[in-house]
Simulated assay, not measured.
Amino acid sequence: MRAIVVDDEWLALQKMKKLLEEQISSDYSLELVGGYQDSYSAIETASKETLDLAFIDIEMPELDGFELAERLLDVQPNLRIIFVTAYHEYAVKAFEVNALDYIMKPVHHDRLTKTLQRMIDSGNTGIAANKGTNRTMLCCLQNLHYVDQCGDTQPFPWKTLKAPELFAYLVHYRDKTVSKQSLIDLLWPDYDTEKATTQLHTAIYQIRKIIKTAGFDLEIKYKDEGYRLIWGEMRLDAEEWENSVRQLPPISSESVEKYQSIMVSYTGDFLEEHRYQWIEYEQERLRLIWLDPVKQLAEYYASLGQYTDAILLYQQIRERLPFAEDGYFGLMRVYDKLNYQLEVRKQYQLISDILQEEFDGEPSQELTEWYLEWSKGPN
């Protein structure tokens, strides 16, 4: 393990270096790359040398320990941070920066030994912990779960109710910073500030632990009073599904299997089973993307006289998008071909009642004109 020490107080810096040198002479494979009183010198070293571990004093001029940690992590994301402080109140904030540990001053040999052992146990010594995670896929269609590198579906072992919602929210807003206050207002609106903050920190810690255990190429960063989920090589089922829809060729006998595959792979709406209110817009957006290939497939089946297959798809459209005319109108036209007159009238009445009740509106001109023209026939 290659380590640096940063402390603006010369005596404290020398003591920390001496304690680490004692560890080097014992059983730990540790190399002390350097000790710095100046934060910018530490950043310069990190830009040139591969480091595993940084012991950082929090109370420093110019750049405090938290700012320095963020800068170092920007240069070397796998670097493990251990904060050294004389103040207990910094402990919680230390973990917001994804610190491995914090040590209270004055530092003692036994306490440092425990920290180094934790470093070894963590299994992350600068080697990319997420090697090969591009085969892992996070799944948000229907419910939140993941597929591991062996292709097996795995649930998340959540210990609190709000942690999965927080994780899902950060996934939805991946690579964007979400303010701490926004998260508290969303998930713990009825808690006082101190209790809500504690709950948030607990959930963040749990998510970080799950990310690490599962081997996800994801990272949560704390900066500017907010959290950002850094997205690496991780796959997301909803994103891959959406891309596959956008790459579909026109429907034909050669491409119909691709359309059928799109249907099968859309296992449910985005986080459908979790019923998070904030996700409704994303659910509707994906439903509308889903609608186009399903309509094309249903029309293709109807053109071949495969009316049962077409009816099943139009019924799915009606169930998934109950306020859209597409499912009802499609069923009306198929039922017309089958001469199911009562069913045609029933579908028109259903969509008329829904639009009137929900929006004080009526069916579109196209649908109304089709129905009126149909009504003039020998029905």
Rank of each mutant, 00 (worst) to 15 (best):
G330V: 00
E273S: 11
D7M: 04
V334E: 02
L297Q: 00
K15C: 04
Q37D: 06
D27Y: 05
A298P: 00
G361E: 13
R2T: 10
H88A: 15
V344C: 09
G126N: 08
Q154R: 14
L367I: 01
L68H: 09
M332L: 04
E9R: 07
R287W: 02
N134R: 10
Y281M: 03
K346M: 10
R235K: 15
K258G: 01
V147E: 09
E21Y: 05
A129T: 06
L248N: 02
R174W: 10
L186Y: 07
H108M: 12
E357K: 10
L73C: 13
Q199N: 11
W374T: 14
Q23S: 06
A129L: 15
P164D: 01
D185G: 11
Y328T: 00
K212S: 03
P363E: 09
Y300K: 00
L236E: 12
K209R: 15
I279K: 01
E49M: 13
A302G: 06
P164C: 02
D7F: 07
P250W: 04
E280L: 10
T197Y: 08
T202H: 13
Y87Q: 12
L342E: 15
Q296E: 14
R275Q: 11
Q247L: 13
F216Q: 00
K180N: 12
I354A: 13
K105P: 07
T136L: 13
I311L: 09
V147W: 02
E369P: 00
E194W: 11
L13V: 02
L112W: 06
K346F: 08
A12P: 01
S244M: 04
Y169K: 12
D326R: 00
L161C: 04
E257Y: 13
D152F: 11
P157Y: 09
K209C: 06
M104C: 07
D353S: 11
P164N: 02
E62A: 14
G226D: 15
L236P: 01
I207W: 08
A324C: 07
S252I: 02
S261C: 05
Y40H: 04
V245W: 09
Y205Q: 15
E373V: 10
Q14L: 11
D121V: 03
L63W: 08
N379Y: 14
L19M: 08
L32I: 06
D7N: 05
E240D: 11
G268K: 03
L30N: 03
Y300S: 03
K159I: 09
L13T: 00
Y102T: 07
S303T: 04
V84I: 13
T308V: 14
R174Q: 07
D185R: 07
Q181I: 14
D309V: 02
E165K: 00
N130M: 08
Q23R: 06
A214D: 05
S375D: 12
L218I: 00
K295F: 02
Q283E: 02
K223D: 14
K337N: 11
G151Y: 08
W370C: 01
L161F: 08
G215N: 01
L183M: 13
I103N: 11
V6Q: 04
D326F: 00
L271R: 02
A42V: 06
Q76D: 12
L291S: 06
E70M: 07
M137F: 06
R71H: 14
I56Y: 10
N78L: 12
F167D: 09
K337M: 11
D292T: 11
Q14R: 15
K15Y: 05
I230H: 15
Y276E: 04
L141F: 04
E240V: 08
G327F: 00
L112T: 03
L68P: 03
D27I: 01
